[in-house]
Design a protein around this nucleic acid. Structure first.
Lengths: 215, 215
DNA sequence: GACTTATTCTATAGGTCGATAGATAGAATT
DNA sequence: AATTCTATCTATCGACCTATAGAATAAGTC
């Protein structure tokens, strides 16, 4: 039944697309949730940003929790797929980890509020969607972990390191950026470069440093 | 006036100390705030944990916000002082940074909920106490930053690194531990060791590694 | 045992917020 | 022009939550 309508899609019948302002509404929602937290924010706050009445929001989402789910979805989408693609590349573990860090940071630029809400407010999602979204999250962790383990196996990274802890360290480092990205005046590439250097090379000066880039 | 009572402390007059259960009440409050967030938690939730009535809590704090402030205070207290003491030691920047990381992680053990609430919920404090607590926070950041800069000046750390970004990276890494410390089964010393290694030495194997310890 | 202080209780006021129902204005379609 | 669809509005209900007031009980103290 529902599938049929996809084939018989009546896109032609009406040129005026329904819910044209949906992106704008969800953007404002993300902003307000990012600023005050899910429970700290009221639907009135969101409406105020948009200049409409509180009740009008319910034309765009069926409940406040549903709105949170929409925001969180846009906060995670892409991370897993991009990460998987990077991990599968035929390059060194060092290079791939750098790319993972960089790609993990880049959504800060245009989806900072969505990412922030996902990171801080996903705990307040209804049980079902929280588990669904949690799966993606854990999938991404596993990608980092695996690349690190491969780096150890390939002799690029220190043997004996705890890949799980390193993963949590790197992700914690990157995710924290969502909380200070707007205040600090650093570009994403600069952050990514500094973080990569820190993780790959550390702070200490190497006795005989081999420049890995510039092939 | 207030100072006088300290000298004339009437501890002897009454053996029953007032607010004996205060520590227990604040502990339960921290637990509930850590679990559900400040606005997501109700005073009823806290009372349920303690097995008392919701209104009885107001014998121990004057408002929900005041309770948050109490929890946050115990979540930050000590960090700044300990950090300052470590930074002033006459040891290498490497060693001091390792100690800073370690001491920053150790409160996770016995005050995990307080730290977590401070990190995640301090934004909901009333303006005045938020600023006061924010000062300590920024003070601690400056301590990390300074040790890193001293490390660069002393030739221990890479020249040209962005001390501010490295500080944010290290703190983000450490603070994230508050969100996974209970789930993961790692001891604080193991976490501190892995994080120190990561920051000081990085992941990459050194061509000619000098073992810094074991004098 | 009377008195005092500490702690918890009952009851409820007062306010806020999410959500629903139905009306309306305007745009697009026929 | 009549009709249908989109988007927003007005009005309001009921639930929940913080905080207060004052009574009641428990735990010493003299």
């Amino acid at each position: 039944m529902i599938g049929m309508t996809v084939a018989t899609l009546p896109t032609s019948r009406r040129s005026a697309s329904p819910r044209r302002r949906a992106p704008q509404i969800i953007e404002a929602t993300a902003m307000v949730f990012a600023e005050r937290g899910f429970h700290g924010a009221t639907t009135q706050d969101i409406a105020d940003v948009l200049g409409i009445r509180q009740a009008s929001l319910y034309y765009y989402f069926s409940s406040k929790e549903a709105a949170l789910e929409l925001v969180c979805l846009r906060g995670v989408e892409g991370f897993f797929e991009t990460g998987k693609a990077i991990a599968a590349r035929p390059e060194s573990a060092q290079k791939r980890l750098s790319l993972l860090i960089s790609s993990h940071l880049s959504p800060m630029l245009d989806r900072g509020n969505f990412v922030k809400v996902f990171l801080n407010e996903r705990q307040h999602l209804p049980a079902e969607s929280r588990r669904r979204i949690g799966r993606w999250s854990r999938g991404l962790e596993r990608i980092f972990e695996q690349v690190i383990e491969e780096g150890v196996a390939a002799g690029e990274f220190r043997a004996g390191l705890d890949a799980r802890l390193v993963t949590l360290a790197v992700l914690g480092m990157c995710n924290a950026a969502s909380s200070w990205y707007l205040k600090e005046n650093k570009g994403v590439p600069a952050i990514a470069a500094e973080f990569s250097n820190l993780v790959i090379d550390g702070l200490a000066i190497r006795p005989a440093k081999r420049r890995p880039s510039r092939r």
